[in-house]
Write a protein that binds this DNA or RNA. Structure first.
Lengths: 241, 241
DNA sequence: AAAATCCAGATTTTCGAAAATATCTATTTA
DNA sequence: TAAATAGATATTTTCGAAAATCTGGATTTT
């Protein structure tokens, strides 16, 4: 049932990319650790070519570092890099949201509402579970991404959308351990925050929607900071790298 | 003298990347045309692996399109894409320049001035030539990039710098045929524009510098539009793709 | 005739061996 | 002893053949 039939459904490069990406974002492959091709070949049962192509793609997304002739490593985590991603994301998506609110049509509104619902349902479901399985975490991530993408999807700029995606990937990595870690989501109602953003957007109140979205990201950054600061271990090299 | 000794100076992937990139940006490889591996293998005398890796890298920079199992093509040109790149660049670099002016130190100022001089000298030299050789064009491009990069180099955001680089590559492609084409640079003194930007920046007048930089990019967009509009042929598929 | 099926030929993708390069250890030299 | 050199090992990079997949045209079926 799981779809691993013989007739391949996609390229092996794509498979390698998805698996590596997940293992990095989820922390299975630790930040900073070297990615030896022989290891990966064993681990995923794939040849050199698809692995290299996947690693190069991940390099362009800044999830892995690469030094010519010296191979690949999982990109390090650092608070300053995290904040850079958060700040830049606010700058990019504020503009994108402004334009989406200006240009968005009925289909866009529908997609925003639909994505919000899909997200909040899944979030409620996961909240009630003690230890959600990986599959569910992944599904939640997908819906979260879909919602934020939907908000700005009508901005009519492929470049803004592209950059937003890049930054989503980056911040996903920092957010993940928080979600999975000590289930402390204190004094914060994410679903409410999403709902308020959604409502201001649909109401075409650009300034309010932008302010709410910015605050949403800002708070996420603060949560991550608080999470990492006390226990500096998981971070690669202090908060400076 | 040219450095093609046996002991390799860099990876073949890098070599493939540089050559392909240049051939695309300069228009030698026409927009939209297919990039068959067998051809490229002949053309550059390289094997499949380095070529594929280079093509994937160019794909992530949007210079080539890629469809799984159907190979690569040179990315099409379109006016709307060009304007998207220009507008996004203004948005990104305005913020980056604001921060650079805020944070920049003495070294930064020095680099900005130095880069400006390098650029204006080379520009003056090229202006006096009838048909500048490719090498000189390439050198001018490098200095032009160096100048614009220097302006924002002190912004303290790797993401803004990264995005700016991406957009530079994209716009370079559209700018190139204009430079090489009918040498009509009517009523426009690029060196003066650069100088004004540089001076406002060094004077730490953020608003003025941003306004000048934005206008600079805006005008470039208009020049390119005017260049392409009358003769719609060179564009890939109208102005909509 | 239109749609569906099947076959070459062309092209991409993948593999693992071979070449190139880096890294580590032992040995020599100053 | 410390620095320099050389050799052995580990790792990445590159190559071209083989496998998988697509494309377009001819043949068959409805």
């Amino acid at each position: 049932m799981s779809g691993k039939k013989n007739p391949r459904e996609t390229t092996l490069t794509e498979e390698a990319y998805q698996k590596l990406r997940w293992d990095i974002v989820s922390g299975t492959l630790e930040a900073g650790s070297p990615l030896r091709l022989e290891n990966l070949k064993q681990r995923y049962g794939l040849g050199y070519s698809p692995l290299r192509e996947a690693l190069n793609r991940l390099h362009s997304e800044r999830l892995v570092m690469s030094v010519a002739l010296r191979g690949f490593t999982v990109a390090p985590l650092s608070l300053t890099e995290m904040w850079d991603a958060v700040d830049t994301r606010i700058h990019i998506e504020a503009e994108a949201l402004r334009r989406a609110i200006k240009f968005g049509d009925d289909d866009w509104e529908t997609e925003v509402i639909s994505a919000f619902h899909g997200l909040s349902l899944k979030a409620k479901k996961l909240e009630q579970m003690d230890t959600p399985p990986m599959e569910e975490m992944k599904a939640l991530e997908d819906r979260h991404h879909r919602f934020h993408r939907a908000l700005i999807s009508a901005c009519r700029s492929n470049w803004l959308l592209d950059f937003s995606d890049k930054l989503y990937v980056e911040t996903e990595r920092y957010r993940f351990p928080v979600l999975g870690g000590p289930r402390a989501r204190p004094s914060r109602d994410l679903t409410l925050e999403h709902q308020e953003i959604m409502e201001a957007t649909i109401a075409r109140d650009a300034e309010k929607a932008i302010a709410l979205l910015s605050r949403h990201y800002q708070r996420t950054g603060e949560t991550l900071s608080a999470r990492y600061q006390p226990d500096a271990k998981p971070m690669a090299a202090g908060a400076d790298a």
